[in-house]
Design a protein around this nucleic acid. Structure first.
Lengths: 208, 208
DNA sequence: TTTTAAATCACCCCTAAGGGTAATTATATT
DNA sequence: AATATAATTACCCTTAGGGGTGATTTAAAA
């Protein structure tokens, strides 16, 4: 089955049941409900869920944070904090664990469901995040002399490691034209070789 | 000043003011409050904030989604949806824009503040993930003929756009040695130029 | 209408870069 | 002690790539 399994870590049984009911109403599966850190870690080892809903405070201790760290170290799944505490000190500690969401009680059904869906989707997309495609807008945002669309097309091919000859053939233009375009682009990027142009592009894409 | 500027896009003035007050209570700065898609886009162009709070429905249209797409295309800032709609159809569309958060009205102060903090922190971390530094381990993981540490050092310099001459000077070795190392590395990477080697490295770094 | 800008192409020059072969030194590994 | 492996260097050859100038065509902007 293709169901999405969610682990609930919450020491107040009434709230845990409440969350569980909500989850199942929305076509997810509750893989387990646990009340302690130990059981949570056990459950992660034996029956890894697709996502974890984590109460930060378990029986007076901030064990939720420790569980979050463990998830980051060992498992590649998203987790969402559900807690009554929204004070800056708690939040500060929580945010360093990079949770997919942070829900403050009392929460509403729509809010939890939305956060779940988005956490799952964003986590799935996270792998694609590395080495994003080039964007003309982002490149030009940091340039005084703008790169044209045509030049950008050539840049993408250079970025993919193509030679001038290959580019000429792919775009049905002469080798001279390719060289001319690239030369013009180098002036705009302040580059003087393919490799330096690529390094420059990487910089422009990140420097927001 | 180092203040974090937040743009509020919300067509109901009362709610917008409510959010604004909350934001300022928590030491953020409201860069502007706008009520329409046009003004939002204008504001993004002229006074880019650090984060955007977005109502999905603006005057009956789902303009918030369009704004979200625009932000993804052109700007490198996080955004959070704040909306009354948590139906699956709306959420489905919203999640494809990869928002940093999705808050369903009525929201509580702690919930919004936490989501803000986490969105900002996670986004900052996310940028570090983009164009990650090269890792010898990851590169070799997918190669039969392994790249040596020395060769990796040279690869890093090529990746940064350095010329052979520059590399020779930086490493206090002869130009011939540089060429030899690079040639050997090309054989391992199945590359035949700097640009193709860089493209190859990108591939090896992502193929996990 | 005139002018500006982008895309196209040609021709020249020249260096950086890539390909091949071979040799030496040092450092591990067996 | 013998043997790989990596790092270092030299020399040769060839070409792809980068720099400069100039010209034509087309489309958009003034």
């Amino acid at each position: 089955m293709n169901d999405i399994k969610i682990l609930i870590v919450e020491d107040e049984p009434i709230i845990a049941e409440d969350i569980a009911a909500l989850i199942e109403r929305n076509d997810f599966v509750v893989s387990a409900i646990v009340y302690t850190k130990e059981n949570a870690l056990q459950e992660l080892q034996t029956n890894l869920p697709d996502l974890v809903l984590l109460d930060i405070n378990l029986n007076g201790e901030m064990d939720g944070l420790l569980i979050a760290e463990k998830i980051n170290e060992q498992f590649n799944i998203p987790f969402i904090f559900i807690t009554s505490y929204s004070d800056k000190s708690t939040l500060e500690k929580a945010k360093y664990t990079e949770p997919s969401g942070y829900i403050v009680k009392p929460f509403n059904e729509g809010g939890l469901y939305s956060t779940l869906e988005i956490a799952l989707y964003n986590h799935a997309q996270k792998n694609k995040l590395k080495f994003p495609p080039l964007s003309l807008q982002k490149i030009n945002k940091n340039l005084q002399d703008l790169v044209s669309e045509r030049e950008f097309t050539l840049l993408e091919l250079i970025y993919e490691g193509k030679t001038n000859k290959q580019i000429a053939e792919m775009l049905f233009i002469s080798l001279n034209t390719v060289k001319k375009h690239i030369n013009n682009t180098y002036l705009k990027l302040d580059a003087n070789s393919r490799a330096s142009a690529i390094a420059c592009l990487r910089r422009l894409m990140t420097n927001k």
